[in-house]
Simulated scan of single mutants.
Amino acid sequence: MTNEPAPTDCFVCGKHRDESLMPGGPVWHDELVVVSHLSPRAPGGSAAVYLGHMLVEPRRHAPGLADLTDAEAQRVGLWCTRAARRLREVGGAEHVYAAVIGDNVPHLHVHLLPRYPGTPREYWWERVDEWPDAPRGGESEAAALVARLSAAGR
């Protein structure tokens, strides 16, 4: 576990301080974890994002899984499960993938990627968001999905 202060240029720490960087604000949060929708303003982002691409992040700046406290690790797992459930129940996903990559932003973030009905098998898993007919939208569409997911509760 790292006790180093959060870097001032960390995008994830920045969006935890300025919730306007999250489309629709946080979907859910507690004292240890924030769940949000991928932002078109994220590093390497584009004007249209894959709708339902959620991020589960510890509030504390922790570069990777091995840097989490036990409490943070438990809470990250809990929020991944809750968010995946809501993506199925409210978002219409038939399956939800989870991945930790950690190459672009050195603040742990678990990617949750829904697979929607009708997604051709060749786009399953790491290509799910490349499907030409995948649901995409800008900040307003992502914020609308965030509102629906948030309204469904934890």
Rank of each mutant, 00 (worst) to 15 (best):
M1C: 11
M1K: 14
N3C: 09
E4Q: 14
E4H: 12
P5T: 15
T8Y: 06
D9T: 10
C10N: 08
C10F: 06
C10I: 03
F11W: 15
K15V: 15
K15G: 03
K15T: 11
H16A: 02
R17D: 14
D18H: 11
D18A: 07
E19D: 11
E19G: 11
L21T: 05
L21R: 13
G25W: 03
P26M: 00
P26H: 03
V27E: 02
W28A: 13
W28I: 06
V35E: 01
S36R: 07
S36E: 04
L38W: 11
S39W: 00
P43A: 11
P43R: 08
G44S: 10
G45T: 08
G45E: 10
S46T: 15
A47W: 10
A48S: 10
V49Q: 15
L51N: 08
H53Y: 15
H53E: 06
M54D: 04
E57K: 00
P58C: 05
R59S: 05
R59L: 07
P63D: 09
G64I: 06
D67G: 05
L68T: 06
D70Y: 09
A71S: 13
E72Y: 02
Q74G: 15
Q74K: 11
R75H: 15
G77I: 01
W79G: 04
A83W: 00
A83Q: 00
A84L: 02
L87E: 06
E89T: 14
G91E: 07
A93Y: 08
E94M: 13
H95L: 14
A98C: 07
A98V: 09
V100M: 14
I101N: 13
G102V: 09
D103W: 08
N104M: 13
V105M: 09
L108K: 01
P114Y: 00
R115F: 07
R115L: 11
G118W: 05
P120Y: 07
P120W: 02
R121L: 14
E122M: 08
W124H: 13
W125H: 13
D133C: 01
A134T: 01
A134N: 02
P135V: 10
P135F: 03
G138K: 06
S140H: 15
V146F: 09
A147Y: 02
L149K: 02
L149T: 10
L149S: 00
S150Q: 07
